[in-house]
Amino acid sequence: MSKKVIYGIFDDEEILLNSVKEVRSNGIVIKEVYSPFPIHGLDHVLGLKRTRLAIAAFIYGAIGCVTAIWLTYYIMILDWPMNIGGKPSFAYYLSMPAFVPVIFEMTVLFSAHLMVITYLFKCKLFPGQKSSSPDPRTTDDRFLIEIESDDEKKISSILNKTGVTEINVKEIS
C-alpha cells in the first residue's frame, strides 16, 4: 500500500484540540499542525518540548554584558586613559558607575537581536522562504492536522468522529 498524507481541516481550535488528543491516544503520529494563531495548550497536547529560546536569550545577554564590560575597560582604562573633567580613569571599579547605562544597553541589544536571529533560524524563516502550509486558509480561519499514514480509513473515521469539516488526501510516492 502506498503512503498517503491526510489533511484534516477544522474551523474551531477547541474541536481541533480534542481531535489532536483523540488521534494521539490512538497511537497515530501527527506530522504537523497549522493554525492561524497560537492555540493555548496545543504544544502540551502535541507533546512538544518547551522551547529553550529564553535560556538562549539569557546566555546572549550575558555575552553582551561581558562584551560591554570589556569594551569600556579596554577603551577607558587600558588603551587610552584620559582625564575627563578632573575625573581621571585610574581603575575600572572607580569609573564603572558611568558605564552602567552602556553595559545595560549592550546586554539588551545582544540578547534581543541574537534571540530573534536564533528564532528565525530555528523556524527556518527568511526572505524568499516558501510557506510549507498545505492550505492557504490556515492563515485565515482554518486549522489543519497533517498525518502521514497508509491507513486512510481509520484516520478518517477518528477525524470525522471528532468533528472535522474537511478531509483531503494526497498520495506521496
Partner: peptide
C-alpha cells in the same frame, strides 16, 4: 518576501509566543 515563508506550524507558534514574551521582558 516580507512574510519570511511563515506557515503557522505548532512549534513556530510556541517559539513565537516565547520570543514575544522575552522581547517584552527586555
Amino acid at each position: 518576501i516580507l512574510s519570511f515563508g511563515w506557515s503557522g506550524r505548532a512549534k513556530d507558534w510556541q517559539r513565537f509566543e516565547e520570543v514575544s514574551l522575552v522581547l517584552a521582558g527586555l
